[in-house]
């Protein structure tokens, strides 16, 4: 009896977002102009991800077959 979970499926998107966030946080440190713009674009990504899943959850909440309602 133990928890087994597909690591890539569960943590994959999280790792990608973490890398993008880190690039965004660091790029504005390196310089102004293009570096700042790069930082804005990268840091918008995690915020956009929140908005996307929040609204897709609201819209698609009726049809989601086979989804377990329990957390554990």
């Amino acid at each position: 009896m133990s928890y087994s979970f597909p690591f890539r499926k569960v943590y994959g998107p999280a790792v990608v977002i973490a890398v993008i966030t880190l690039c965004g946080l660091l790029s504005a440190l390196f310089g102004d102009g293009i570096w700042d713009a790069l930082s804005w674009v990268a840091l918008i990504v995690p915020l956009a991800v929140i908005v996307r899943y929040y609204y897709s959850g609201r819209r698609g909440s009726v049809r989601r077959p086979g989804m377990s309602g329990k957390a554990l």
């Binding site: 928890y3 087994s4 979970f5 597909p6 499926k9 569960v10 994959g12 998107p13 999280a14 991800v49 996307r52 899943y53 929040y54 897709s56 959850g57 609201r58 909440s61 989601r64 989804m67 377990s68 309602g69 329990k70 957390a71």
Partner: peptide
Amino acid sequence: MRRLSFGTYRA
């Protein structure tokens, strides 16, 4: 999250 897909939000 092991049984849920990423970004699940059950509104």
